[in-house]
Amino acid sequence: MKYKVSVVVPVYRVEKFIRYCAETLMQQTLKEVEYIFVNDATPDHSMEILQEVLICYPERQDDIIIVTHEVNKGLPAARNTGLQIAQGEYIFHCDSDDFVEPDMLEVLYTEAVRKEADIVWCDWFLSFEKNERYMKQPSFDTAHKALKAMLGGGMKYNVWNKLVRHKLYVDYKISFPAGYGMGEDMTMMLLFAYAKKVAYVPKAFYHYIKLNSNAMSNVYTDRHKEELKHNVNWISEKLISIEKDLSKEISFLKLEAKFPFLLMGDSQSFKLWKEWYPEANKYILQNQTISIRNRWLQWCAWKNLFGIVWVYSRLFKLAYRMLY
Rank of each mutant, 00 (worst) to 15 (best):
V9S: 06
P10A: 05
V11L: 05
Y12R: 08
E15W: 08
F17H: 14
Y20D: 05
E23A: 04
E23Q: 13
Q28V: 02
Q28N: 10
E32Y: 10
E32R: 10
F37P: 03
A41E: 01
P43E: 03
E52S: 13
I55S: 14
I55P: 04
I55M: 13
E59N: 08
V67Q: 15
H69Y: 09
H69M: 05
N72K: 12
P76K: 00
Q84D: 14
I85E: 08
Y90V: 01
F99W: 15
M104T: 06
L105R: 04
E106D: 13
E106K: 14
L108T: 06
K115G: 09
D123I: 09
S127V: 08
F128T: 08
E132F: 11
F140D: 08
F140T: 04
A146Q: 09
A146S: 11
L147H: 04
K148G: 13
G154H: 05
K162Q: 13
K162P: 02
R165E: 09
L168T: 01
Y169P: 06
Y169Q: 07
F176Y: 15
P177M: 11
G179N: 10
Y180N: 11
Y180E: 05
M182E: 12
E184G: 01
D185I: 00
T187V: 11
L190C: 03
A195Y: 02
A199D: 04
Y200L: 00
V201Q: 02
A204R: 09
F205M: 02
Y206V: 07
I209N: 10
K210H: 08
L211D: 14
L211E: 14
N212W: 01
N212T: 04
N214T: 12
A215C: 12
V219H: 09
Y220I: 03
Y220F: 14
T221S: 15
D222C: 13
L228I: 02
V232L: 07
S236R: 02
K238M: 03
I240V: 11
I240S: 08
D245W: 02
D245Y: 05
D245K: 09
L246G: 05
K254A: 00
A257I: 00
M264H: 02
Q268D: 09
Q268H: 10
K271V: 10
L272V: 11
L272P: 01
W276C: 06
W276Q: 08
E279T: 09
N281S: 13
N281Q: 12
K282E: 15
L285G: 03
L285F: 03
Q286R: 09
R293L: 15
N294H: 13
Q298W: 00
C300Y: 06
W302R: 10
K303I: 13
K303P: 00
N304D: 15
W310T: 15
F316N: 02
K317P: 00
L318F: 13
A319C: 09
M322Q: 12
M322Y: 12
